[in-house]
Amino acid sequence: MKKVEMKLLTRGAEAAVYLGDWFGQEAVFKIREPKQYRHPVLDSKIRRLRTLHEASFIAEARRLGVATPLIYFVDQERGEIVMQFLHGRRLKEIVNGDVGGAEAVEGWCREVGRYVARLHLGRIIHGDLTTSNFIVVGDRLALIDFGLAFYSTRLEDRAVDLHLLDTVAESAHHRSAERVTGAVLEGYREVMGEAEAEKVLRQLKEVERRGRYKKQVD
């Protein structure tokens, strides 16, 4: 658990993620380091809040049937979460590389849709649904990074949650965008139920219509 023994896995925008040792076990140390560009008061408020939120949402999501890493320890002051290390590959790579073929990729995307629906039914909005935050571990899919999650049952929030995945499909995986979104929505419908899913998807259209540059300025 000393910093010197830790290996930097990724330095994302949100936090630095280290691989280290936690009482003899491999563990991920997710540390929200201070952001120099932010006012210190604002910065500390955001880091404390997101650390606490993330830890509680990770636990809550698992109760809803969404696989997430186990939490070992939370240090709110330092903005640090210690959690289970998942040996797997990011869905982003799987989709981009068409790993396992188109059918397998679509299967994972359907599972993404199911996961999102389970969260939404459990009143949780993930808030950061990118394909980098889904990890394929063996034959299971896990979801990480709940730093922007919040509780809501509003259609609007559900739609925006899904919209982000859409944006990512369009931007990162533009070659297979339609397949990716199609399969995600299929899985979402399956768990959410046709009627409820339809409401969210209608709202999603509204969100996209309302987005900038689709309407007149001012």
Binding site: E170, G211, Y213
Partner: peptide
Amino acid sequence: GHTVITAFAARRWRVFGETL
């Protein structure tokens, strides 16, 4: 008139984020 984060890829400017 604009608040958008974009980068060029495969013949288009792709939007990575924008104002809602």
